[in-house]
């Protein structure tokens, strides 16, 4: 991510002057990302709109996996998050952010479903108060 154009020399990000070969190379990177993202999006829409392809109860999980894969494609091909030395701080920040996101989403779902199970339905509460 730190260097939008992949350079062999890592951190230097030299004057950012690009030759014609670099430009076409960089553009090709985005086109590969576009192709992969289009493929994953297409599969997601197909799974959601046709009932025959996937066992129905597994559809939300299949869609989640496809969404995660597409986010990975975006991170690598568009945001240029790599495993290179410039990127370590960014990857660490992303990992911490993901931890918080997981805690928030799954924590909320976990607690609220249990709450839902344990709380008396509203109609019965209303009846008891009469």
């Amino acid at each position: 991510m730190s260097t939008p154009i992949p350079h062999a020399h890592g951190d230097v990000a030299p004057g950012d002057e690009l030759g014609p070969a670099d430009v076409s190379h960089a553009i090709r990177g985005y086109l590969v990302g576009l192709a992969l993202a289009t493929l994953l999006t297409g599969v997601s829409f197909y799974i959601a709109s046709s009932s025959a392809l996937v066992w129905q109860p597994s559809i939300p999980i299949a869609l989640s996996v496809l969404a995660l894969a597409q986010m990975g494609v975006h991170l690598v091909f568009f945001l240029h998050i790599t495993s290179g030395p410039d990127s370590i701080n960014n990857v660490m920040a992303l990992a911490f952010g993901l931890l918080i996101v997981m805690l928030l989403v799954f924590g909320s779902l976990w607690i609220m479903t249990h709450l839902d199970h344990n709380v008396m339905p509203m109609e019965r509460v209303m009846k008891m108060q009469r």
Binding site: T41, S44, F45, I47, A48, S49, S51, Q56, I59, P60, L63, S64, L66, A67, Q70, M71, H74
Partner: peptide, 14 residues
């Protein structure tokens, strides 16, 4: 990506 997959597609999926 998260929104269209998990809000819209899951919302209409059979």
């Amino acid at each position: 990506v998260a929104l269209f997959s998990l809000v819209y597609l899951v919302g209409v999926a059979p």
